Measured scan of single mutants.
Amino acid sequence: TKVFYNGTYVEFNNPEKAKKYAEKVAKKVGGTFTEKNGQFHVE
């Protein structure tokens, strides 16, 4: 499961961990995250 952010991504074996990371990054940058095709995108 990949989490895309700012033109790069971090890959996780565990979708649950990926979601938590996406939430954390989104919170940090004051943005939101969306799930597309089983991957997370932070905006």
Results as ranks from 00 to 15, higher is better:
residue 1 T to D: 01
residue 1 T to A: 08
residue 1 T to Y: 15
residue 1 T to M: 07
residue 2 K to I: 07
residue 3 V to F: 02
residue 3 V to Q: 00
residue 4 F to W: 15
residue 4 F to N: 03
residue 4 F to T: 03
residue 5 Y to M: 07
residue 5 Y to V: 08
residue 6 N to P: 00
residue 6 N to H: 10
residue 6 N to L: 12
residue 6 N to A: 10
residue 7 G to L: 05
residue 8 T to H: 12
residue 8 T to L: 10
residue 8 T to I: 11
residue 8 T to W: 14
residue 8 T to P: 01
residue 8 T to M: 12
residue 9 Y to Q: 06
residue 9 Y to E: 06
residue 9 Y to T: 08
residue 9 Y to K: 04
residue 10 V to D: 03
residue 10 V to K: 12
residue 10 V to G: 02
residue 11 E to Q: 11
residue 13 N to V: 11
residue 13 N to C: 15
residue 13 N to R: 12
residue 13 N to F: 10
residue 13 N to W: 10
residue 14 N to M: 06
residue 14 N to W: 05
residue 15 P to K: 15
residue 15 P to M: 12
residue 16 E to N: 09
residue 16 E to R: 11
residue 16 E to L: 11
residue 16 E to D: 12
residue 16 E to C: 14
residue 17 K to R: 11
residue 17 K to P: 05
residue 17 K to L: 14
residue 17 K to A: 15
residue 18 A to Q: 01
residue 18 A to N: 00
residue 18 A to V: 00
residue 18 A to Y: 01
residue 19 K to H: 07
residue 19 K to E: 06
residue 19 K to P: 00
residue 19 K to M: 09
residue 19 K to F: 08
residue 19 K to L: 10
residue 20 K to D: 11
residue 20 K to V: 10
residue 20 K to L: 13
residue 20 K to C: 14
residue 21 Y to V: 03
residue 21 Y to D: 01
residue 21 Y to P: 01
residue 21 Y to G: 01
residue 21 Y to A: 03
residue 21 Y to E: 03
residue 22 A to H: 00
residue 22 A to D: 00
residue 22 A to G: 03
residue 23 E to H: 08
residue 23 E to Y: 09
residue 25 V to G: 02
residue 25 V to F: 12
residue 26 A to K: 01
residue 26 A to Y: 03
residue 27 K to E: 10
residue 27 K to P: 01
residue 28 K to V: 10
residue 28 K to N: 09
residue 28 K to L: 14
residue 28 K to P: 02
residue 29 V to M: 10
residue 29 V to P: 02
residue 29 V to S: 07
residue 29 V to G: 04
residue 30 G to D: 05
residue 30 G to P: 01
residue 31 G to F: 05
residue 31 G to N: 03
residue 31 G to V: 05
residue 31 G to S: 06
residue 31 G to R: 04
residue 32 T to G: 05
residue 32 T to L: 08
residue 32 T to Q: 08
residue 33 F to N: 03
residue 33 F to Y: 12
residue 33 F to A: 08
residue 33 F to L: 14
residue 34 T to F: 15
residue 34 T to N: 07
residue 34 T to P: 00
residue 35 E to W: 12
residue 35 E to T: 07
residue 35 E to H: 07
residue 36 K to T: 08
residue 36 K to L: 11
residue 36 K to M: 10
residue 36 K to D: 06
residue 37 N to I: 04
residue 37 N to A: 08
residue 37 N to T: 04
residue 37 N to D: 13
residue 38 G to M: 04
residue 38 G to F: 05
residue 39 Q to L: 06
residue 39 Q to W: 08
residue 39 Q to M: 10
residue 39 Q to P: 01
residue 39 Q to N: 15
residue 40 F to E: 01
residue 40 F to Y: 13
residue 40 F to C: 02
residue 41 H to M: 09
residue 41 H to L: 09
residue 41 H to S: 06
residue 42 V to L: 04
residue 42 V to F: 04
residue 42 V to P: 00
residue 42 V to Y: 03
residue 43 E to Q: 12
residue 43 E to K: 10
